[in-house]
């Protein structure tokens, strides 16, 4: 556990120091290599993620878990697509499957929230108190500003909406950005000092040993 913790801190500090102080060419070159390693490891992590998901579905088919037959769909789709892509990532059939099957489903699934958000707004978006009223009025004005007919029916929503978005809302988000930035720095200090170790898989190890 000690060595990965030290490695995290050393690499992190190398990146930070390089930015603020002039460094020998060897350090800059090492940082460039490390950053390219990070992109390669990140790509491998995504590969690992898909493998873990495939193992889960394969096990489900093997053990005849609940609704296992849907997992066959996953496994077949995965094997066919991955197989074609590994043979040639620019293969036309591979790209056709992606463009015409995954893309439309993805777009449709993401867009489902349009319906849920409307139903939820009808039921719970209420001006129960002044705080809720601020939220409701801002949402209504901005939506009317965005739809072209809103500007025709209620012309003042355009300047009002743009003002709310730029100033009161902009100020709120600026406060959040400053807070988040402090959070990133605080997290960094904790990780580099070895006070935060979750990224090293402590929880998984504990959970599996229990």
């Amino acid at each position: 556990m000690q060595i990965p913790m030290i490695l995290t801190a050393v690499i992190g500090l190398l990146m930070i120091i390089e930015f603020f102080f002039p460094m020998p060419a060897s350090v800059t070159s090492l940082n460039v290599t490390l950053r390219s390693f990070v992109t390669i490891i990140s790509a491998t992590a995504l590969i690992l993620g898909t493998i873990v998901l495939t193992i889960f579905h394969t096990k489900k088919v093997g053990t005849r878990g609940s609704e296992w037959y849907y997992s066959i769909v996953y496994v077949v789709a995965f094997v066919v697509t991955a197989g074609l892509g590994v043979l040639n990532v620019r293969d036309t059939t591979f790209l056709w499957i992606y463009n015409n099957m995954t893309s439309p489903i993805g777009a449709a699934l993401y867009s489902l929230t349009a319906f849920y958000i409307t139903s939820a707004a009808y039921r719970v978006l209420r001006a129960r108190n002044w705080n809720a009223a601020v939220l409701l009025v801002c949402a209504l004005v901005v939506l009317l500003m965005l739809i072209p007919i809103g500007a025709i029916l209620f012309p003042p929503v355009v300047p009002l909406g743009e003002w709310i978005r730029s100033f009161p809302s902009g100020a709120g988000f600026r406060g959040m950005i400053i807070g988040t930035s402090l959070g990133i720095m605080g997290l960094g200090v904790r990780v580099f000092m070895g006070r935060q170790k979750e990224h090293l898989g402590i929880r998984e190890e504990r959970r599996d040993s229990e």
Partner: peptide, 27 residues
Amino acid sequence: KFTENLYMGILGGFIFATNWNYVRTSA
């Protein structure tokens, strides 16, 4: 449910293949 699993399968395969291509060409 069929559609959701089909989506996950193809997307998983796509992510696998494109990232493998990156690892192959860059490492």
